[in-house]
Simulated assay, not measured.
Amino acid sequence: MEIRSSTKYFAEMVGTFSLVLFGCGAAVVSGISTTGPAGIGLLGIAIAFGVSVVVMAYAIGGISGCHINPAITIAMLTAGKIKAGEALGYIVSQFIGATIAAGVLYCIQKGLPGWTPGEWALGSNGWGPGYLAEYNIASAFLAEAVLTFLFLFVIFGTTSKWGNGTMAGLAIGFTLVLIHLVAIPITGTSVNPARSFGPAVFAGGKALEQLWLFIVAPVVGGIAAAIVWRVLEKK
Rank of each mutant, 00 (worst) to 15 (best):
N125L: 05
F153C: 10
L43N: 12
A207C: 07
I32A: 14
C66L: 03
V228T: 15
G130M: 01
A84S: 11
M167C: 04
R4G: 07
I172H: 01
V220W: 04
F149K: 11
V28L: 12
V219F: 00
V154G: 11
T7M: 11
I215Y: 14
Q210I: 07
I45C: 12
A75P: 03
T189E: 07
G130P: 03
A224E: 05
S30A: 14
G41Q: 09
G130I: 00
I100K: 01
A101Y: 06
A168R: 10
P113L: 07
V20A: 04
M76Y: 15
L232M: 14
F22C: 14
E2S: 08
V53E: 03
E144P: 03
S190K: 02
Y58A: 13
K8A: 04
S6Y: 09
I40A: 06
A183N: 14
M56V: 11
T16Q: 03
T35K: 13
A27Y: 07
L105T: 04
G65H: 10
L147C: 02
A194R: 08
F151T: 01
T116W: 00
V29F: 14
F10L: 15
L21H: 02
G128H: 02
A207V: 03
L178G: 14
A46V: 07
T73F: 08
W120P: 03
G126Y: 02
T7C: 02
F156D: 02
S64H: 14
C24F: 06
A102E: 05
P70T: 09
F149W: 05
A168T: 13
A102Q: 05
G61I: 09
I32W: 03
F22G: 04
V154L: 09
F174S: 11
C24L: 07
A84N: 01
F49A: 11
A26N: 03
E134P: 05
P70M: 12
I63A: 02
Q109E: 11
S33F: 00
F202A: 04
E12L: 05
G23F: 00
I155P: 02
L21K: 07
A225L: 10
V201I: 15
H67E: 06
V146K: 06
A57K: 09
M167T: 11
V154R: 07
E134M: 03
T187M: 14
F156T: 07
V228W: 11
F149Q: 10
G205E: 13
V182T: 11
V182F: 09
R195V: 11
V231G: 10
A183C: 11
G80Y: 13
G50I: 11
A194Y: 04
G97P: 06
A226Q: 05
I96P: 06
G44V: 06
V182C: 08
A194F: 02
G39W: 01
L43A: 15
N69Q: 13
P199C: 12
A98Q: 13
G97S: 05
A59Y: 00
A98Y: 13
Y135A: 12
L178D: 02
Y90K: 10
A84D: 01
V191W: 03
I3P: 08
G85W: 01
K206E: 05
I137R: 09
G198E: 08
G198F: 07
L176Y: 12
F22I: 15
I108P: 15
E12C: 04
L21T: 07
S124D: 01
A183W: 04
A79T: 03
P218V: 12
